[in-house]
Structures are given as structure tokens and as C-alpha cells.
Design a protein around this nucleic acid. Structure first.
Lengths: 203, 203
DNA sequence: GTCTATAGAGCGATAGAC
DNA sequence: GTCTATCGCTCTATAGAC
């Protein structure tokens, strides 16, 4: 199946080598951004990791900012199927527990999110809109799930759910940062306990 | 009373002008760090704000890292009396609601904390130990307060309080970042609702 | 498509006049 | 104690050979 829907040009489809090279560079950039953040990472750092020159990065992507956007897009693509499976089997809220457990085992992944999120607070940052949208979307996705849970009697009826949905985002964000300072922090357990707090009174 | 316990040298105490100048530079640095973070701020940016040259900053502080430490120390000194008063009148937990409400009105203050916190994740960063200590200390200070509240029957008895103490820190951190992305987020209300979640079941 | 060379700018820090 | 001048370095991005 791979490449079957493309006209052959050379051994693989068109631009196959160029696309593979670009993918290698994006992977290298993702790794180095995760270790050092965006601002502190130079094109030379990424080029060294990818086994090429910083000039070739510019050739392929045009600028460091564009490369960052490719990294964010790639990360979202990698996440989507894993996340979809977790949501399918556990529901959106409990899936977060599973996702945090899993993400903690991928070196640099959470540091990438935390570092870029805060760097991108500046509205002029190339990833500012991306993160604003990600958080808004996530809160908007969580809200109806919270309403369903409330209507099913599984969470308290006296809570301002739009605020609670946003608090879910904030909690995940904050727990990640505390975990980065102290790996003894159990991120999944934090989310689990917080979800427990939402449950109705049991006497 | 001011300066009375010092031998006069010139019109004011010793080093009076130098200390005033240093204080002005620290205030300027605090403002610019708050707007741009530490890494993205140059000594020239700070010097311009303070109305002097970047060389004079080095003269007074020796390095950019030392200047950052002075800023953090100054910020802690500014915070201490306000915080102490809030804790005295409201108790430690409710004081946080008050503090977040107040801090939201000081431009750049929360951005300073959030930006530096994440930049300082790197153990080699000049503020890494400072922030690790601040978060550990705060969680350690909150824990006995939570235990008192539990013993007084004001919060649930089935919660892992050491984790909850750390979650308080994480929540404040995360809510601040969400607020920076969307000023419509009501930080104090988030803390208030979370504290409400801790209360015992009421049927 | 990848390289070397380099432009052009900004950085932290230093030296030394005043 | 403050300045100008500058060092030595790093950065993003460009130019052009191959």
C-alpha cells in the first residue's frame, strides 16, 4: 500500500528522498527543542543532531519558525491515534490519566510542551496561536463530557462546568511543570485524584 | 528613623547613591524580565529602561545571572509583607485566592513567574534551585494547614494530603498560564472552586 | 540537495578614559 | 561610578560552488 497511489519517479514516489530528509530533520528538531526549548536551540544544534548543516535546514524550511510549526504539527500527528484509542477505551477524562502516564515515559516530550507553551506566551511567538487554540479546543472538548458525566450522576451537580473544564487544562499543565522540577511527582495520580474530587458526595 | 543607625557619609548613609542606583536597575530588570523573560532580555534592554549603559550593569552586578538573582530576591521581599497579612487574616489556603486576585492586577508579575519558572527547568539555569526550593517550601507549608483543616472537619478525610498540597501548587501554576493565554480566566475563582472541591460531602 | 563561506546583527563581558 | 569602544562569540539567514 505505501506509495501505491503515487506515480513512480525514481525508486519511490516523487520527492521521496526530500520528504524523508525533511522528516528526519523535523524529528531531530523535536528532540532538541524538547531538551532545550525553542529559543535556546540554534539551527546548528538541530543540524548536528540530523547530521547535516544549518544551511540545509534553511533550504528545506525557510526559517527556524517554520521548522517549529512543522514540529508542532508532527507532534500532533503522532499524538492523535494514541489519544483516540485512549479516549475510545476509557472516555476523555480517564484517558488523560492514561496519556500522562504514557507521556511521562517519553523523554523530553513534556518538557517540549511546557517550554514551548510558556515561550509562546508572547503573541509574536511563532507558536502563540497554536497553543492558544490547543487549550481552547481541549477545554471545549472536555465541557460536554463533563455535562454528560453530571447528567449521569457521576459528578457533582453544583459545579461551574465551563470553569472546571478549563481547570482540567490548568491542572495538567501545572502538574507537568511540577513533575519536571521533581520526577517524584506522580502526574497520572494527580489527575486521578482531581477527577475523584469531582464525584458526588457519598455521605 | 531611616538611616539613623548608620554613620553619616556624605548626605545619606554610606553607598546611598550606589544602593539607590542598584535598586533602580533591579526594578528595571524586573520589569523587562517580566515582559520578555530572562533569556530573551539583553543587558542592553535593561540598561535602556534604567537610563544607563549595559556596562554599568556589569559594573554593579558582575553578571546577568547575578542580576536575575537580585530580581528574584527583590520580588520575594515585595511579596512577603502582603502575603503575611493575607495569611494572618484569611488563613494560608484562602490567602491564595486573595493573592491571585491581587497579583492579576500587577502587570507582568505573573508572566515573570511563569516565564522564569519554565526557563529555569534547566538545572544549569541561574534560578533553577531558587524555584525548586520555592515550590517545595510552599507545598511543605500547605501540608500542615491541610491537616489542620481535615482534623477540624472542614475538608474530606479520604484525601492523600501530601499529594493535595503539591496539587495546590500545580493548580496555581497552571491557572496562571491559562490566564496569560486568556485574561478571561478568573484565577481567584479557580482556586476558590478547587478549595470547595476539598470540602466534605454534604449529602 | 548539500556544502562552505560569509554577511549582518546582537550578545555578554572587558578595558580603560574620565 | 559611568561612559565609549571593543573583544570574542553566537546567532539566523544568504550566496554561490558543486
Amino acid at each position: 500500500m505505501p506509495g501505491a497511489d503515487r506515480p513512480a519517479r525514481g525508486a519511490r514516489g516523487p520527492y521521496a528522498n526530500g520528504e524523508r530528509r525533511r522528516a528526519e530533520i523535523v524529528d531531530a528538531a523535536m528532540a532538541v527543542f524538547a531538551e532545550q526549548g525553542y529559543e535556546r536551540t540554534s539551527l546548528r544544534d538541530i543540524a548536528e543532531r540530523a547530521g547535516t548543516s544549518h544551511a540545509s535546514l534553511i533550504h528545506h524550511f525557510g526559517s527556524k519558525a517554520v521548522l517549529l510549526r512543522q514540529v508542532l504539527q508532527r507532534r500532533a500527528e503522532l499524538d492523535r491515534p494514541v489519544r483516540a484509542e485512549a479516549v475510545r477505551t476509557a472516555g476523555l477524562l480517564d484517558a488523560a490519566v492514561e496519556m500522562m502516564h504514557r507521556n511521562a515515559r517519553v523523554p523530553g516530550l513534556i518538557q517540549l510542551d511546557a517550554t514551548l507553551t510558556v515561550e509562546a506566551l508572547d503573541p509574536a511567538h511563532p507558536a502563540h496561536e497554536f497553543f492558544r487554540q490547543v487549550y481552547d479546543d481541549f477545554a471545549a472538548e472536555v465541557l460536554p463530557e463533563l455535562e454528560r458525566e453530571r447528567d449521569a450522576g457521576r459528578i457533582r451537580t453544583d459545579l461551574p462546568l465551563p470553569l472546571v473544564a478549563r481547570q482540567f487544562v490548568a491542572l495538567i499543565q501545572g502538574v507537568q511543570i511540577q513533575w519536571l522540577y521533581d520526577p517524584g511527582v506522580d502526574m497520572a495520580e494527580h489527575v486521578r485524584v482531581w477527577l475523584e474530587l469531582l464525584r458526588p458526595a457519598r455521605g
